[in-house]
Design a protein around this nucleic acid. Structure first.
Lengths: 334, 334
DNA sequence: TTGTAGGCGTTATCAG
DNA sequence: CTGATAACGCCTACAA
């Protein structure tokens, strides 16, 4: 064990522990003493003990990150952004997966609090009100990412889902499509709601009557995508284009359409959500709305740090990052 | 702040703090006292303070996980396995990315040690000897995953790369291929070495002369894949089949071959590494060697826990998990 | 600007 | 089996 303490440093530097502590915490001190302390620290290879420090100051220089699923590409990119931003500030990140379960979300959230993290970034499983005991006592900053939660006054970083979806649907319309199906996702998730709003708004702006049969509320999972597409193409008057509003459903829409040997960009048009290298390698490549996942992570980390440092300016702050539309020949001009 | 301490519990339960502490740590005590303490804990909503506990016992119930890149699909699945295994034991995981840099790997490793984690799982950037000061003093258990490191006596969990590659090449041979190119990866990574060994061994077993032109040592990155494929198909006597030995290079091999409009499974055969749903959706689907990433994570976590709990049986233990070959029509019968 | 000493919440060592 | 008490390493009044 590297059991060097400030006491050892103090001894070697011939000052008191108080002075060493002050040095560590960046207080002013006599140049001579500073030198001696630096030398001693170097010589002894002193490392501050975060446990002892945390015990006194209740700061751990650690944040918690809670996401629905670690193996999800989108989540992964978000985390990468968070890690990048936090590492440069010497903060560590404790990662938890709620496995798409509200129960686990609550449990892991409590677990994170119990670990005395300085703040939490959470991508909620659902956007329903979130009764959570922790919110009342222990007051550490929390930043939502990707999804908002009803009735929760927390900072949040999301992408502009309404306009992201709008741009996709508008593109479909501009390509001549009038019968546009949407895999709308569960409406207890804010992103799904907002994307549906974008869809509605685009249809509205272009005077297209909404056909309820074209709106399928599917869970944001593999099976959700599969069933939704089956439903849509099985209609007596099926849509000519499908807009799938998240990544897993897009993957599986694609899968089903290919299995049915419907030629994409010809017999059926498809626009999806979230970027994957591989989407662009199909023939034709798949049109998608791309979210700035990494930047969302960085932004959430930055906001959280502001709060941790006591700056509560503009609380609660909701940051909306713009999406980008990749339009390809997976959408036919008709 | 949930500032309830064992002192408060002791007061309410009318016992001493020592007794409460013993209760927490599962020692035997008089049934009456146990009851009273349980009631007090419940009533006060007492939570143990991990900082204070850690300060005394130098156990944090936290492990570090250090990987080359968070957004890599393989890494992600590994982490998911680790998280699953650790969460059930009430351990937290601190995650760091070395961003494929040896320097960062050392830095983050030290950072983890400084955070007093109880153990570390690391997927090393390279397999070269790893001079690392931490290994001498602070003796916490470390488990390597996916890649071995030369001269390091550490436990490790890897996949059976030699036989994984062997099975792929053997399949190619059985399909009639004799001119088999390999994108072999940098030889300072054990997985790359071993997969090349599998390739060699298969050729040898089937009496096929090794053609050095068919072996391309490319970095395990996008560009590595691109350049390697270009080299192979540009040969005057190009291979009829290509074996790409990791995921990013496989993705990009695929990309280049498609751009060149070489029909896979016909003009050129391809076998890759690591599973992605999307690989199976191309026409034809892509043959791949699949590693049990999630299980590797679970296994590494289990091994680490054994060591943390003081069980050093069989140290250093190298566990090799079997791979699975998915053979598709991306490989032509000739 | 510096030294001293008390305390953060636990655990561990003693006696009892 | 239990109670009292001294650590664990650091921070922060307070006094000098």
């Amino acid at each position: 064990m590297s059991n060097v303490t400030i006491k050892d440093v103090a001894l070697l530097a011939e000052v008191s522990v108080g002075t060493v502590s002050r040095y560590i915490n960046g207080y002013q001190l006599k140049a001579g003493n500073r030198k001696k302390i630096e030398k001693a620290i170097e010589e002894l290879d002193f490392k501050i003990n975060p446990l002892a420090r945390g015990l006194r100051s209740s700061k751990t220089f650690t944040i918690g990150v809670l996401i629905p699923r670690i193996s999800d590409v989108f989540c992964t990119q978000v985390i990468e952004g968070i890690e990048e931003a936090m590492a440069s500030l010497n903060y560590s990140i404790l990662i938890c997966s709620s496995n798409d379960s509200v129960q686990q979300q609550t449990d892991k959230m409590n677990g994170l609090m119990d670990k005395c993290v300085d703040g939490i970034i959470v991508m909620p499983v659902s956007s329903n009100e979130w009764s959570w005991r922790g919110s009342s006592d222990n007051r550490i900053p929390i930043v939502l990412i990707d999804r908002l939660v009803r009735e929760c006054e927390w900072d949040a970083v999301v992408s502009d889902n309404v306009n992201g979806a709008y741009s996709a649907v508008e593109m479909l319309i501009n390509h001549g499509h009038r019968k546009i199906g949407i895999i709308a996702g569960p409406q207890n998730i804010s992103t799904a709601q907002e994307r549906l709003t974008g869809y509605m708004r685009a249809l509205n702006d272009y005077n297209i009557v909404v056909n309820d049969d074209y709106i399928v509320y599917a869970p944001y999972t593999k099976n959700g995508g599969i069933e939704a597409v089956n439903r849509l193409v099985g209609l007596t008057d099926p849509p000519t284009a499908i807009f799938s509003t998240n990544h897993p459903t897009t993957v599986n829409s694609l899968k089903v359409l290919m299995e049915k040997e419907l030629v994409i960009g010809n017999q059926i048009s498809l626009c999806g959500y979230d970027q994957t290298e591989l989407f662009q390698m199909f023939t034709p490549p798949i049109s998608v709305v791309v979210q700035p996942a990494r930047d969302m992570g960085i932004s959430a980390a930055t906001t959280l740090m502001k709060r941790i440092n006591g700056d509560y300016e503009g609380f609660p702050l909701i940051k909306r990052l713009k999406t980008q539309l990749i339009a390809t020949s997976s959408v036919k001009k008709i």
